[in-house]
Design a protein around this nucleic acid. Sequence first.
RNA 1: UGGGUCGUAGCUUAAUUGGUAAAGCACCGGAUUGUGGCUCCGGCAUAUGCAGGUUCAAGUCCUGUCGAUCCUCCCA
Length: 415
Amino acid sequence: MAIKAPKGTKDVLPSESYKWQYIESKWAEICAEYGFKEMRSPTFEATELFNRGVGDTTDIVQKEMYTFNDLGGRSITLKPEGTSPAVRAFIENNQYAETQPTKYYYNTSCFRYEKPQAGRLREFHQFGIENFGTSSMLADAEVIALGNDFLNRMGIEDIELHISSVGCRKCRPVYRQTLQDFLRPHYDCLCETCKSRFEKNPMRILDCKSKEDRELCKGAPMMLDHLCDECRDDFETLKKHLDAMGIKYIVDPTIVRGLDYYTKTAFEFITTKIGAQGTVCGGGRYDHLIEEIGGPDMPGVGFGLGKERLLLLMEASGQDFGGTKGPQLFISWIGDNAREYSVKLLYDLRRAGIRAEMDTKERNLKGQMKYANKLGAAYTVVIGDDEVSSGELTLKNMENSEQTKVRREDLIDVI
RNA sequence: UGGGUCGUAGCUUAAUUGGUAAAGCACCGGAUUGUGGCUCCGGCAUAUGCAGGUUCAAGUCCUGUCGAUCCUCCCA
């Protein structure tokens, strides 16, 4: 039996990898423009980081982490998200002592033990940015602006920006209580899922798909209407910043980010074009995470963006990924003399920065030409005894079959 | 975490109420031995996801399992 890749993982072969390279290069480009610097963190971390960071009541921590003991008896977890590791690195390397804010971007694999489907894998890849050290909504607006700009640059149009505020330590517990008080009389009428949500995450009930529950939720108190003064002001300010940039958004009170660390700003870029997993990019503010992980009391804001989902969306909308380039010159050879001559010519051309190629299967001439065609070579040249002795080569344009004579030493300039 | 659909050569598909597993693309060779693409000819296939069951006979029906996918859930 052949061995298969583990469930929920995918190989990226050349027929796809150029697309990844395309979005990765554009990602690095836009982050540089917005002043975010790349940081890289380990693929695995101490399990405790995620228990504290993501929160041990979340689905992610409770049932989706790849956790194991290493040979030294340490509990290790493959990172299920990018923010906590970024925060850990920020603290551990004393970056809080530098000029603030600190603006990081990253490009990483994440791991969650999920039931795979389109846009949801067990190893998935995400871009992310984090801004540590400022509680100003200017930072939130900048983070959202980068996400919006990036998606635009990737040619994405069918996507909506949903924003909300999930409140802070002061107002959220109060609201939560208010909501539970409202729902409690109707508890028995709720669907099974929502009954389980009642204690764990009552805000999710407001987002239930069942008709009965929707009816019950009519008139339910919304977090957005129960923000404290500071949170309400911040949310208004954020909207003002977005308006100033002309970024369209939908205020969506049902956004409830599933990680415990979010405070105030929560947002998602959502599409309906790629199936059920419509959140391409999601993030928000986390004002206590840094402290939670053992650092100073510093706020932060950021997002994660799923690369697989972005690619699905780009493919669904027929985006151009730049494609791959064939060789500029393909060298065919006949006979032993020509072979050594060609090997040297190939090496010289490549050292000069030319995409040159040659057959390494020792095909006959016809086979070499077919191969050159397959590779999409712009020009070919055939080297035989005549060419070796005269140094005069015949360059063939594969597009129109025109042939031109060229001296070997002039070859680089002609191509 | 529940529920549905689907698995046939590398790829895309075919196979009457259960009855010889077929074709196109791709690949290789030839027509054209120092010239690719187009055309024609020929060749090539470890294929019914895996394990059982029913049957004279299973790609087709049944059970289990693995995988993909959709909804739910969750999130990127």
